[in-house]
Computed example of a mutant assay.
Amino acid sequence: MKARIGAALAVWLGVAGLAMADDQGQGSVVVELYTSQGCSSCPPADEILAGLADRGDVIALALHVDYWDYIGWKDVFGSPQFTERQRAYARAAGARTIYTPQMIVDGMEHLVGARPAELTALIKRYEAMPEQAVLDVARKGGTLAISARPVGHLPQGAVVQLVRYKPEETVEIRSGENAGREISYRNIVTEWHSLGTWDGSAPLSMDVSVSDSQPIVVILQEPGPGRIIAATALK
């Protein structure tokens, strides 16, 4: 998909001041960006995600897919696992095709392309939704303590997921559609693991071993994948 870079960034700059002023929300909205270094339409969306990365009310995650690698540049962060996660979202939504760039807000809203005004509105909408679960995460040496309690009934339960990411890295792209560009990426997902399921009928408590100080995100998400009901980040 080919985006109009100038128009996308102009709209983003127009709403960035409003968005950044509202970064003390009651909960964290998860924004997943499916992107690729081999996609010429992706840099505007990468910049939008970078603008979200330091907000306190958003957990911004860049998942690099591998299906653009065939055109001449292998994305150094690309993973078939992230491609499959994007495909799973498409299946859940009844869509036949996947695209880059694509942003998914709280597991529910799908935005193809760099659409900052719509993204800002969706973040505000999901911030305002009532809590479905209270999630607490604490790092104690090499152990991550995860606890949660439901707020009301959770009919589908949740998948407990652990995400690790690199805060930032700059890549010189030497071939493919973005040949000759040097691009800085933010919140680059390196691992995404399912830790198990929670039926939501009683409080959740689990301990997980963690081996380094790389930032951590814990996500409770309805199966499907469906709506993200709670998420917490430790930087």
Rank of each mutant, 00 (worst) to 15 (best):
G56S: 11
I228E: 02
K124A: 15
A93C: 06
L204I: 00
D69P: 04
W192V: 02
V218A: 00
V134F: 07
M1R: 14
W73N: 07
V65M: 05
R91C: 04
G6A: 15
S79G: 12
G56M: 11
P150A: 15
L111M: 04
E182F: 04
V76K: 14
A138M: 09
A231M: 02
V30Y: 08
L122N: 02
H193R: 14
G157V: 01
R55K: 12
E118R: 12
L49G: 07
Q81I: 14
G38P: 09
V105H: 00
G56N: 11
P203G: 04
D57Q: 12
P203Q: 05
I123Q: 01
L49D: 08
R186E: 03
R227S: 10
G176Q: 04
G38W: 06
I146A: 01
G224A: 02
L220S: 05
I59G: 08
A230W: 08
T197Q: 10
V29E: 03
A62N: 14
T100V: 00
L61F: 10
A230M: 02
M20R: 15
E172N: 10
R115V: 07
A148S: 01
G51K: 11
A145K: 13
L220G: 10
H193F: 08
T100W: 01
G180Y: 03
T143N: 11
M103G: 03
H193V: 09
A133L: 01
L154S: 05
W68V: 05
H153D: 14
L135N: 04
H110N: 14
R186N: 07
S201C: 02
A202C: 02
G107L: 00
A231L: 02
S184Y: 03
C39V: 07
A7E: 15
Q132I: 01
V163R: 09
A233P: 13
P44D: 01
L162I: 09
G176A: 02
E32Q: 11
G152Y: 02
A92C: 07
A90M: 06
R227D: 07
A92P: 14
G51P: 11
P215C: 00
V11N: 14
E182V: 13
E109M: 06
E191T: 12
T143S: 12
I98T: 06
H193A: 11
P44L: 03
A202Y: 04
A53C: 08
Q132D: 08
I71H: 07
I59T: 13
I173S: 10
G72D: 00
R4P: 12
G6C: 07
N187A: 03
V151W: 03
L119R: 12
V137L: 05
C42K: 12
R87E: 13
I71Q: 05
A50Y: 10
A53S: 15
T35L: 10
I219Y: 03
R85F: 07
T197G: 10
L135K: 07
P116D: 00
T197L: 06
Y99D: 03
A45W: 11
L162K: 09
Q102G: 05
D207N: 12
P130I: 00
I146Q: 00
E131H: 13
N187K: 07
G38V: 01
L9V: 13
V30P: 14
M206N: 03
E168C: 09
V163M: 08
K124V: 08
V11Q: 15
F77S: 08
H193K: 12
D54V: 05
A128S: 05
A114T: 00
E32L: 06
P223R: 04
